[in-house]
Write a protein that binds this DNA or RNA. Structure first.
Length: 347
DNA sequence: AAGCCGGGGAG
DNA sequence: CTCCCAGGCTT
């Protein structure tokens, strides 16, 4: 590794200048505060900006301060998060807010080291809040930065394994050490990855770092970083039974761990294979007097290919949580379960 | 080090 | 279809 401080400083200047000229106007950039950054960063974990835009302002209107969030019921927080995915983030955000109120007098810590002690905040998120809001000189590495720096340094191998990530953190740390503004350099590097140095067809003609980019010098932009093999999706079958009685629908809460934890659903039985009506009636948590299939659809998550088999059922059972459509709308539901309630509305 | 956790958009 | 996304936690 050849050190070149002049090159490093030039790179940080180029990134900062480009960012100041071409950065998008995003809600969390309008006003800066630790709380606003905290909400934005948790929502943005493994989630694209366009998707977060649909949630960010609404969430802040519902929970204007970190104390409002700490006071809220977890089900309310989950309901605000509904549809955004990775719901553990919502519970982490809620727990972090409560920790800040109980341990820090309601003031979010300013240093990356203190922030990283909060639930749901790892090295990236702590560095992002500390550097972007408070200009602390700490590096950040997310998916965008991994790609930008791998190309900039022409590191073809192992961008995603332990060694590759360590090298990327090293590079990010070295560069931010030369930056006139940690805030604008760090955010600029991510913005560059999102807008210019994109995974498939990077727009090198518009890139402020084109002259410094080793990958471009070797015409290897498309080879870096090598694609990361994803997990294989297992096929599973969810048999969901709509049970209605006097304009109310029977719902149950999912377990506290695993997929869609603590969220709600119509009585649903999961199985590796499709079940017959008899098998479904035998093993469903609710005794049925009637059962008929009405619909089916597919739903994908990172680790599963789920086929939802939707049924209409009847029961004599009176116990349980029977909800009107309005009540159900306020509960946290997965997207497929929300779709099933739409089917129930037409049934 | 690898698995788990959502959902949608791009190509 | 595949790959990716302002990752973190658990095992």
């Amino acid at each position: 590794m050849i050190r070149n401080p002049r090159r490093d400083r030039e790179i940080t200047r180029k990134v900062i200048r480009w960012f100041e000229a071409d950065a998008r106007e995003l809600p969390w950039r309008r006003k800066r505060s630790g709380y606003r950054a905290l909400v934005a960063e948790l929502m943005l974990q493994q989630t694209q900006v366009a998707r977060v835009l649909e949630y960010y302002d609404r969430f802040l209107r519902r929970f204007p301060t970190i104390r409002d969030l700490a006071r809220a019921d977890e089900q309310d927080v989950l309901a605000q998060w509904q549809g955004l995915g990775y719901y553990r983030r919502a519970r982490h955000l809620h727990a972090a807010a409560r920790a800040v109120v109980s341990d820090h007098r309601g003031r979010l810590p300013r240093s990356a080291a203190e922030l990283e002690k909060l639930p749901g905040i790892g090295r990236y998120t702590a560095g992002a809040i500390a550097s972007i809001v408070h200009d602390e000189r700490v590096p950040i590495v997310d998916g965008n930065v991994t790609r930008v720096l791998a190309r900039l340094e022409g590191r073809r191998s192992s961008a995603h394994d332990g060694k590759g990530q360590a090298a990327t953190w090293q590079t990010a740390s070295r560069l931010v050490g030369h930056a006139a503004s940690s805030s604008r350099f760090n955010e600029g590097l991510m913005e560059l990855g999102a807008l210019i140095c994109t995974p498939r067809q990077p727009n090198c003609k518009s890139c402020p770092l084109a002259r410094h980019c080793r990958a471009r010098q070797h015409h290897a932009q498309h080879l870096i970083p090598p694609p990361k093999p994803g997990p294989r999706q297992q096929p599973v079958h969810h048999h969901a039974v709509i049970v209605q009685r006097k304009a109310r629908t029977l719902l149950e809460q999912r377990p506290a761990t695993g997929l869609w934890s603590n969220m709600w659903q119509v009585p649903t039985l999961e199985s590796p294979t499709p079940l017959s009506g008899e098998e479904l009636r035998e093993h469903l948590s609710v005794p049925l007097t009637h059962l008929e299939p009405v619909d089916s659809f597919r739903h994908q998550t990172t680790h599963r290919r789920i086929t939802f088999h939707v049924y209409l059922g009847r029961t004599r059972l009176r116990r349980g949580t029977w909800c009107t459509q309005e009540e159900a709308a306020s509960l946290p539901l997965s997207n497929p379960q929300r779709r099933i309630l739409e089917i129930a509305l037409r049934a």
